[in-house]
Design a protein around this nucleic acid. Structure first.
Ligand SMILES: [Mn+2]
Ligand SMILES: [Mn+2]
Ligand SMILES: [Zn+2]
Ligand SMILES: [Zn+2]
Lengths: 152, 152
DNA sequence: GCAACAAATTGGAATGGTTCTAAGTAGCAA
DNA sequence: TTGCTACTTAGAACCATTCCAATTTGTTGC
């Protein structure tokens, strides 16, 4: 047995197998670090593996989410999107273009946010979503300075 | 013409009529200040108005949201819930009970949150959702002290 | 290698909240 | 009245997702 990559390792930890379908789906999500829907993942994966089924795409995405290799994110009631960024971060939904941008959150801010919870509330996760418009030119320079990661 | 109530006024401002259906739906949402789904609103409204249709409930809820009389809130891909609390606030989703609690946010924190956006990002709204568990006894006393409003 | 068994994939059907459509009803204006 | 528009309604349609039953694939013990 060869040295297992991160995916195979994480799957094995959960008693699951590394399959060609899971590998190509994980690759596709890591390659282009945007926030594709299951349909978009399906379309991209079919370039490499034309025989894969949409049901399998859904099954594999759920597996990857449960193994903490990918995050599922929802905006309103739109189709679920999948995010390869595992660090705690917020999302900015650009209503003009429909694109999603990751927004880094200082740990200090996360603490302040959690501290607004009254006694007795125990939050396992916090989700922060901005909605608005992002002007592209300034945006790109801000990203180049490392203030935010672009994500379609 | 008699003095119009808040609902009639707001509808008139948008060039819309105050109908019995819109009135009863708005009343039902204000009466019990939880976060009902359209189906739950439908069930409650039928007590007063058995002939109302579910399509009308959806139509009226959308109207109320567009007139800024009610807020629509989404959790994952669960059915949309409707919130009568118009002040800026976060939501705590208790995974055990499925109940939603309003969490008040200090204006100071809202400013800090918006300040994490890089230049070029213009947010029209921010949505903050906690997920976890809330222990009922402590919760009630915290609420009595005014730290949070209960909401089913 | 070969059974036996379990895990994973697959196509297609089903689900379910929401939206759409077309027909009917109700209120307002000339 | 008559017309005009807004509103409501029942049921069909939509569509992302889940479910199902059948097949394929992989693993384990011999
Ligand atoms: Mn959008
Ligand atoms: Mn829940
Ligand atoms: Zn992300
Ligand atoms: Zn609320």
């Amino acid at each position: 047995m060869a040295a297992p990559d991160a995916l195979a390792q994480r799957l094995a930890d959960s008693g699951l197998r590394s399959t060609p379908q899971r590998e190509v789906i994980y690759d596709v999500i890591l390659r282009k670090r945007d926030h594709p829907t299951a349909d978009e993942v399906y379309a991209r994966v079919r370039a490499d593996m034309p025989s894969i089924s949409l049901a399998t795409v859904y099954n594999c995405l759920e597996t990857l989410v449960q193994c903490d290799l990918v995050r599922a994110v929802n905006f309103e009631r739109a189709p679920t999107r999948y995010c390869p960024n595992l660090h705690p971060h917020a999302h900015f939904h650009d209503e003009q273009s429909g694109s999603i941008h990751d927004i880094q959150l200082p740990a200090e801010l996360l603490e302040k946010i959690s501290s607004v919870l009254p006694a007795g509330y125990d939050a396992k996760s916090v989700q922060i979503t901005f909605r608005g418009s992002a002007s592209s030119p300034r945006l790109e320079s801000a990203e180049r300075r490392g203030k935010a990661q672009p994500a379609a």
